[in-house]
Amino acid sequence: MTTLAARALIAEDEALLAAALSAALQRLWPELEIIGVAANGIEAVDHALAAQPDIVFFDIKMPGKSGLEAARELADEWPEEQTFPLLVFVTAYDDYAVQAFEQAAIDYVLKPANDERLAKTVERLQARLAQNRKTGNPGNTSDDMERVLQQLRGITPVPAAQERLRMIRAAVGNQIKLIPIEEVIYFEATDKYVNVVTAGSESLIRTSLKELIPQLDPDQFWQIHRGTVVRIAQVQSAQRDEAGKLSLRLRTRPETLAVSRLFTHLFKQM
C-alpha cells in the first residue's frame, strides 16, 4: 500500500471515542498526523479553518453544532484558493443519516468502528489524496468544490412540514407588534434572535432561524445563507463581485444580501 503523509482533524465530543478513533487511525495510517480534537461543532469549524487539515472526521451528534451543520458552515467559509478537506462523518446509529450518506456518496464510519471498515475508508481517502496531489492541483477546482456542495445539499435534513406562520409577534418595548407574514422581506439571524425586516421596519423575535424555517412557505421564502431567509419575490437581481461572492439586490430595501456557497445554485441563469 502506498502511504502518504496527511493532516487530519477529529471533531468528536466524547473524549474517549475521539481517542479511540485517533488510535485506530494511527494503527492503520501511521503517516497521518492528527492535528487536534475539537469537542464541539463550533470549535470544529474554527479549528479546521485555522489549521487547514486535509481530512476532517465529523461526529454527527455534537453539542453546539451537529456534524452536518458544521460541515456546511465549513464549506461556506472555506477560502477559495485552498483545497477543501475530505470529509468523513462518524455516527453511532442513525438509519436516516446512513441512507443519506449512501445516496450522496459521502464517506461515513459507524461507531464502534472496526479496523476493517476503517481501513477501507483510509484506503479511499489515500486514493483521493494521491489523485489530488498527482494532478498537482494547487487549490480547489470549482468542480471539486461544487461536488462537495452538491453532496452536502443532498443530505440537508428535510424539516417536517408544520403549520404556516401567518403573523409574526414581535416584542417592541412593552408591547407586542403584529407583523403580517406578507409584509416580511427577509429574516436575518443574529446571535439568539431573528431580525424581521419589512419595507419600513426591523423587529427582533426570540427564536432561531432553524425553528422558523419549517413554518414558512418554501415557495415564497428561500434560504440563501446560514443566517438569511428572503422573500424571493422581493429579489430584484443577483450579482457576483470581484471575489466571486454572490449577493442579492432587493426591490424595496437599499441593502444587499449575501448568498452563501451552499445556495448559489439557486441563482444560476436559466
Binding site: 471515542l17 479511540a20 451528534k61 453511532a92 446509529y93 461507531k111 464502534p112
Partner: peptide
C-alpha cells in the same frame, strides 16, 4: 435508545484495551 447503546458500546470497546 440505539444511539445511546451504540455510543456506550463504542466507549466500552475503547476502554477495554486502554
Amino acid at each position: 435508545e440505539p444511539h445511546m447503546l451504540f455510543n456506550t458500546l463504542a466507549t466500552l470497546q475503547t476502554l477495554i484495551s486502554t
